[in-house]
Design a protein around this nucleic acid. Sequence first.
DNA 1: GGCCGATTGTAATGGCCTATAACAATCACC
DNA 2: GGTGATTGTTATAGGCCATTACAATCGGCC
Lengths: 160, 160
Amino acid sequence: MKKLPSPHRPRSIAPIPYVEGVDYDVMDELVGYSLRRAQVAMYLAFHEATRGLGITPPRFTALVLVGANPGITQSLLGEALGMARSNAKTLADWMETAGLAERRARVDDGRAWGLHLTPRGARLVERMKKRVLAEDRRRSARLGAADRAKLLALLRKLAG
Amino acid sequence: MKKLPSPHRPRSIAPIPYVEGVDYDVMDELVGYSLRRAQVAMYLAFHEATRGLGITPPRFTALVLVGANPGITQSLLGEALGMARSNAKTLADWMETAGLAERRARVDDGRAWGLHLTPRGARLVERMKKRVLAEDRRRSARLGAADRAKLLALLRKLAG
DNA sequence: GGCCGATTGTAATGGCCTATAACAATCACC
DNA sequence: GGTGATTGTTATAGGCCATTACAATCGGCC
């Protein structure tokens, strides 16, 4: 089994602390900053679920999207991820190098590649989806089920 | 008046779209991913409020913290920002180069610098705080005041 | 059928964010 | 006074993301 590219230390491993004696001024009134803090905290869940796999959040999202949309184009993947085509290519290169996905020529369009998970990629994605979801629930369990749902609704409204 | 370092294009300017026909699979059940989407959306507020100033979220936070904690140490700043000392130094270098803050020797500790806003930095921070807060409120106004407060509470609980 | 604008992938470039490791100067404490 | 911890610094590295420019291809229109 081919080894995945090295993990690298993807992001900070600890939540952003509230340092004793430091005045945070206006920061805590900002939804944007509060989102950032919460996101760093939730990243711990992601990190826990994917440790040692060399997976990062964008890579995970890309793999999930390729899995759920076989044959998806790099351009469309980039659009769905909210990034430029050129960066979606970088992700596709990574997926291919890691042996998790492959590019197949499309009969309907000579310009575009269709991205498909390899069997190994599909297995990995299935396993990761379960683990990431489980850790995400575990970390957010402190809110309680009702508030967790409420939070998701509020975030959706904010992002929409 | 010295010119600030060039803006650079800090981050995506548009929210992450839900692309028609793309299956997002498990992503929307994840609090982590929903946070990411909301954060990108709220970044628009930040971008609007600081356009053309070469300010990024970490830079803004650093400036606010230095303003609210005059004489703060680089190490402490880094800790409060949740980043390594070495990166706090990079921020301090930037602030100094931009003429927004200065390092002063500390009588109580020969190793450490004390960071202080310059008069110009203080003026800029005051103006930015007002604008960032206003835009943040404006963007999150779609939630309504009650739900905005609820969201902040949930995020705090999640991050804590 | 042929031209032209739009789209796709690619390549090159550059900036920011963030982490680690190693080092010298200084501090704190025994 | 010596030893371990802390501070700032420097070097290094990787990921994320945007822009620009280019060739190949597609699509539509004349």
